[in-house]
Design a protein around this nucleic acid. Structure first.
Ligand code: MN
Ligand code: MN
Ligand code: ZN
Ligand code: ZN
Lengths: 152, 152
DNA sequence: ATATTAATGCAACTGATTCTCATAATTAGG
DNA sequence: CCTAATTATGAGAATCAGTTGCATTAATAT
């Protein structure tokens, strides 16, 4: 059994919940997707492997995965919630271009200490850190500049 | 005319849009609310002042305020988008307790330089920085601890 | 004034998420 | 094994934040 499955089982047991076959499939699918996903994309990726798991169950399982610390919110886009598996992945910053939608990730570790200092100061137990930066990627920025030049 | 109204007008003109009376009311309402708000709360606060402005127009105006750099996303909660006016306010971190919903804000300026270094490195033009931390506030954390002790 | 264009209110619509409920799987005891 | 108690599930209906179409109105330029 993989480490994340073990942790999920452990979390579920602590809550008096059961590690069922649908939940196992959903967990595996979340860890097989290596980009951000929304509930439906997760559902589709499961359908490719097995059938008879409903979208409702996917929706019901995502919060469990999050509470278990295995999955986290990613940058919202197109007005839908997006997620990513996190167990075994370092925290990172999300840079989202509002024009072309390009998503880049960079390391958050240089910033973490400063955040932890603040957390300690206010005795806050941080479970999810989300640093998302929206703006223009270098490509879209340069297109923007060209346009401004054209408009002169 | 207040500074933020001037900026809004300026932005609208640049886009060939008009500073209408509903837009003015919505802008003012956004700057009179000093906590985070969602579209409907903004709408309600306007209704208290004047009538005949529709919720649809509020929804249509919020993106304009955001593009004009006057309003920004705040931490999402209860599955709704939330906003806050930002013109004249320093950037800050949002700490949201998942148990009691308490929201605390702290200064982001100690972290900004490190973010700017990364932005410069990737030539990304950052327009909106959102740092939200979810977890347990000190109160809820201590209640949690008590429970664990009880359960022994 | 008049013409042109953008903005609005209203109501209908959309679509992601949640909920209901009848059925099925899981687990603990005996 | 069997049985009872509990939790989980699929299917589809319901919800409800947010969007859109459209007929009317307001803003602006000439
Ligand atoms: Mn990511
Ligand atoms: Mn704030
Ligand atoms: Zn881009
Ligand atoms: Zn709390």
């Amino acid at each position: 059994m993989q480490e994340h499955e073990k942790l999920f089982k452990q979390y579920l047991e602590k809550k008096g919940l059961k590690l069922t076959s649908p939940r196992r499939f959903i967990l595996e699918a979340a860890f097989n997707l290596h980009e951000h996903f929304n509930a439906e994309e997760l559902y589709v990726s499961i359908k490719a492997i097995t059938s008879g798991i409903s979208l409702a169950t996917v929706y019901r399982t995502i919060p469990l995965l999050m509470e278990a610390g295995l999955v986290q919110h990613a940058v919202r886009s197109d007005g839908r919630e997006r997620y990513e598996h996190i167990y075994g992945h370092p925290k990172h910053i999300h840079w989202l271009c509002r024009k072309c939608g390009a998503l880049t990730e960079t390391d958050l570790s240089t910033l973490s200490p400063a955040i932890e200092v603040q957390a300690k100061g206010m005795q806050f137990c941080a479970e999810e850190i989300e640093l998302s930066i929206r703006g223009l990627c270098w490509k879209c920025k340069s297109i923007d500049n060209e346009n401004q030049i054209d408009e002169r």
